[in-house]
């Protein structure tokens, strides 16, 4: 109870107050003032969808996307290990080149990454580490008969890398961040080449539906370029997401390529112990 009270009392919301003085502050690397960052962004983009189970043609159109990120410093390795959870959800409506057929696609992905930070200098850091990547969704072609949809479900171990660069411009602090996550080993659900879902679900066909994926069979990449900056009392995030999910398994090829631009906000929480005279406020991640 005492410990709970202590933690409740020391978790203080640290919104970027006093942004005019940010440039003078140092960034806490140690675990005693570790912080958690929450980002929520929304946006639209362009999508290119191709799935040879449904059509030999690529479909293009618009998507809407939301991304929720939690980035938390841990006590491990003297505060150099960070945990990141990323929730990406997007839905798109696309049409074929002739403009007479539509395909609808939606994908939800959740990433859990453990990143180790290499701090190169006060402004520049590199983070790298493994991530668990879960994906689920569906692609639906409105005019197909017995192959109207393709289910997407996969789990991957991925490598994730992040570059952080903080700079000061026009009397404000900016945080430029680039992150790339690419799966290197995993498993995914797929029907066999010409198999109907009737066989899978009605006849309980025990075909090769769970396949191992590698960078050769699922060369995918999700990358984000974002810029955080203060605007009045709020931290704004604008970002670009390039999401390239691809696979070629069971002689079936599929890709969902997205280019989305998002905007949203970021909130930083920082752990403060009562009476901590060494507390250093960290409004932007170092």
């Amino acid at each position: 109870m005492c410990i709970q009270k202590l933690f409740l009392s020391i978790l203080v919301l640290c919104l970027p107050l006093g942004v005019e003085n940010l440039h003078a502050q140092e960034y806490a690397d140690g675990p005693h003032n570790r912080y958690t960052s929450h980002g929520l962004t929304f946006g639209v983009g362009l999508t290119n969808v191709f799935d040879s189970y449904l059509s030999p043609l690529e479909y293009t159109g618009m998507e809407i996307r939301v991304q929720r990120e939690t980035f938390r410093q841990t006590t491990f390795a003297d505060g150099k290990i960070y945990v990141q959870t990323l929730l990406n959800a997007h839905a798109s409506a696309t049409e074929n080149t002739a403009g007479n057929a539509n395909m609808y696609e939606g994908l939800l992905s959740w990433d859990l990454g453990y990143l180790y930070k290499f701090r190169l200098n006060d402004n520049f850091s590199i983070l790298a580490g493994p991530a668990l990547d879960l994906n689920g969704g569906v692609i639906y072609n409105e005019r197909n008969s017995n192959n109207p949809a393709q289910a997407k479900a996969s789990i991957h171990l991925a490598a994730s890398g992040m570059l952080l660069y903080k700079f000061h411009w026009l009397h404000k602090d900016f945080l430029l961040r680039y992150q790339a996550t690419a799966p290197f080993l995993g498993a995914m659900f797929t029907p066999e080449y010409g198999e109907s879902y009737y066989e899978i679900f009605e006849l309980k066909d025990s075909g090769r539906h769970l396949v191992v994926t590698t960078p050769f069979s699922a060369p995918s990449l999700r990358q984000t370029l974002s810029l955080d900056f203060p605007l009045k009392q709020t931290l704004i995030r604008v970002s670009y997401i390039g999401d390239f999910q691809q696979n070629k398994v069971n002689s079936l090829k599929s890709h969902v390529w997205s280019h989305a631009f998002l905007i949203g906000f970021v909130k930083n929480f920082q752990l403060v112990k009562p009476g901590d005279s060494n507390f250093k406020h960290t409004p932007l991640q170092p």
Binding site: F50, F124, Y178, F244, Q246, K248
Partner: peptide
Amino acid sequence: PVRYLLICFLGLSGLLASCVRG
């Protein structure tokens, strides 16, 4: 560093842009 970011960004995008297609 900004240059590094851009190089990574463009390089990886280009690498994957034409991998799995019909």
